[in-house]
């Protein structure tokens, strides 16, 4: 995919910036978590753009955030399932 740069990002309006970041994040996350990628991308987009840009340059920080998001999502889904079961 086309690389995303900080200058490309900062020249776009704020809503467009999230869209650009999402388009960049989604295929990366899909490779690891195909079923959860849309949700995980949504969670990561709540992070500040400057931090997302850092993650763009540092895959290790991206994967650690993805791991955190997956854990949060699974805990959330387990809680929802437990609430439904009651």
């Amino acid at each position: 995919q086309e690389p995303l740069t900080a200058s490309m990002l900062t020249s776009a309006p704020p809503q467009e910036q999230k869209q650009m970041l999402g388009k960049w994040l989604l295929p990366l996350i899909q490779a690891m978590h195909p079923a959860l990628a849309g949700k995980i991308t949504g969670m990561l987009l709540e992070i500040d753009n400057s931090e997302l840009l850092h993650m763009l340059e540092c895959p290790q920080s991206l994967w650690s955030k993805v791991d955190e998001a997956v854990a949060m999502l699974q805990a959330h889904q387990a809680k929802e399932a437990a609430q439904k079961a009651v």
């Binding site: 849309g38 949700k39 969670m43």
Partner: peptide
């Protein structure tokens, strides 16, 4: 608690403008 967070987190779709948490109905 009424468990209103059932739609969390918002899901990203490449063709849909991102609205973040605003797209979750309370």
């Amino acid at each position: 608690s009424n468990g209103s967070s059932i739609n969390w987190p918002p899901e990203f779709h490449p063709g849909v403008p991102w609205k973040g948490l605003q797209n979750i109905d309370p």
